[in-house]
Simulated assay, not measured.
Amino acid sequence: MSNRQLLVSKIENGIVIDHIPAGKAFLVLKLLKQPSDAETLIAQNVESGSLGKKDLIKIEGTYLTSSEIDIIAFVAPNSTLNIIHNWEVKEKRVIKPPEKIKGVFQCPNLLCPTNKEFAAPPTDFKVETGEKIEETKLHCTYCDSTLWYGSILEIIRKNGFQIEGRGLVSEAKIEKVFLEALIKGGALRFPPSPDQPFILKSGRPSPYFVNLGALTDGESLA
């Protein structure tokens, strides 16, 4: 099968990361920590009108956290993330470095408050970008120390960063977490018996009722 045939093959649900700089696909894939059973397609050195050559990744049945997208931006800036649902592109965005990044990279200053042994706050960096990705640097908001791009890339290559809940989020996991939040928050209700279903405003009977207004705490809304 040719690269052209691989590129046009569609996925039902999942993500497509396109316009990755040539040679960076496996580094991006390493950052994602995809499940071992994830259906993954990688195309390298594919002809591109804008880049000359590009890489591309397709992963079936998985999605990314915002923190993972931020990390990809330091390796493959201006790549394109496509979110696929029911064979169609539901969302498309250009991946760019964030303005701030928290709790991911360690501050290089050992005397920084974020490096305290106990009760240390999460790291918090302002992101400064330039015309080239190599000009990117991070400024610690606590001690104003600078993390240069070479150090950022080295940390990424060695997996020396932290992301809470790191790893691709499957659609099944999203559904499970959402259902648990509904139950915990008392938002999911069932009638006293199957013979007495809830009657919706439309007049249709329903075997359950979801009241999203019951989710009032920060954990549930997140």
Rank of each mutant, 00 (worst) to 15 (best):
N3F: 13
R4H: 12
L6E: 12
V8K: 14
V8I: 15
S9L: 10
I11P: 00
E12T: 11
N13M: 01
V16W: 10
D18Y: 04
H19R: 13
A22H: 06
A22P: 00
A22S: 09
K24E: 11
A25G: 06
A25K: 05
L29A: 06
K30W: 00
Q34Y: 00
E39M: 11
I42M: 10
I42C: 10
A43D: 02
N45V: 00
S50P: 01
L51T: 07
D55Q: 01
D55M: 05
T62N: 10
L64H: 08
E68H: 03
I72L: 06
N82H: 01
I84D: 05
N86W: 00
V89Q: 04
K90E: 13
V94P: 04
K96G: 08
K100Y: 13
G103S: 02
N109I: 08
L110W: 03
T114Q: 10
F118C: 00
F125V: 04
V127L: 05
C140N: 00
T141F: 02
L147A: 04
I152P: 08
L153G: 01
Q162E: 03
G165D: 08
S170F: 02
A172E: 12
I174Q: 10
K176T: 12
E180D: 11
A181I: 09
A181Q: 05
L182E: 05
G186D: 04
L188R: 08
R189H: 12
F190E: 11
P191D: 11
D195S: 07
K201L: 14
S202E: 12
S202C: 07
A214S: 14
L215C: 09
L215E: 05
G218S: 03
A222F: 11
